[in-house]
């Protein structure tokens, strides 16, 4: 939660810096071009690859646990696709790309800004932050109604870190491993899936 506040604070202070009028109008984010994105992708890749604990968790589980992230991907894509059907202002590709952040707002918003547009990047930032906050607040309720996987499903990629405490408290310690596994799989998937959806 603390780190999400820091990320959000950087974004908000950027808005105020922009609103202050000290900067020229129509500041172009894309001036930094693809190289900033490539650098970011490379760093994100290294971060994923060099996490020894992640590989260990991924390697030591039975087939059942794999269905957890699979169901979250299917559910998230179905849900966000429905939004495109209801809201005429967004296309299927756009809502699915935002959904494919799975709560990992920092990386997904920057990727989407670079690959698509600033406005969709902002939607991705807000939507994925909201997914994390909603999970923190609603997990007790969701677990009560839908069972022990509900908090993990709601948290998406955040289930491995920021929403893990609330998940393990309400679903039980034994589900913490499931949460970390599912969160890792989804975190790794975010950059690939967002890119795939926006460029295919």
């Amino acid at each position: 939660m603390r780190s999400s506040l820091i990320f959000f604070a950087f974004f908000v202070s950027g808005i105020f810096a922009g609103l202050s009028g000290l900067l020229p109008d129509g500041f172009d984010f894309n001036r930094f071009g693809n190289y900033a994105l490539y650098l970011l992708m490379f760093l994100a890749g290294v971060s994923i690859g060099s996490d020894k604990d992640s590989w260990r968790v991924l390697a030591t589980h039975n087939y059942k646990i794999v269905w957890v992230p699979v169901s979250i991907v299917v559910g998230t894509m179905t849900g966000s696709a429905l939004v495109a059907a209801i809201l005429p202002s967004l296309t299927l590709r756009e809502t699915m790309a935002v959904g494919a952040g799975f709560g990992y707002y920092s990386l997904s918003s920057v990727f989407i800004t670079q690959l698509h547009s600033q406005s969709l990047g902002v939607v991705a930032l807000l939507s994925n932050i909201f997914r994390e906050v909603a999970t923190l607040l609603a997990t007790p309720l969701l677990v009560g109604y839908f069972g022990n996987l509900a908090g993990i499903a709601s948290g998406g990629a955040t289930a491995m870190d920021t929403t893990l405490p609330v998940i393990s408290r309400y679903s039980g310690q034994s589900y913490a491993v499931v949460a970390v596994f599912s969160g890792i799989v989804l975190t790794i998937l975010v950059p690939f899936l967002v890119t795939f959806i926006l460029t295919v």
């Binding site: 998230t76 849900g79 959904g99 807000l126 969701l142 839908f146 996987l149 709601s154 998406g156």
Partner: peptide, 24 residues
């Protein structure tokens, strides 16, 4: 942008919770 964001997150959470319930 705010309500579009909230719509996508609520739909994503609802879909994920629904499908994970089957797995559960």
């Amino acid at each position: 942008i705010g309500y579009e964001s909230v719509a996508i997150s609520i739909a994503s959470i609802a879909g994920s919770v629904l499908f994970s319930t089957f797995v559960f």
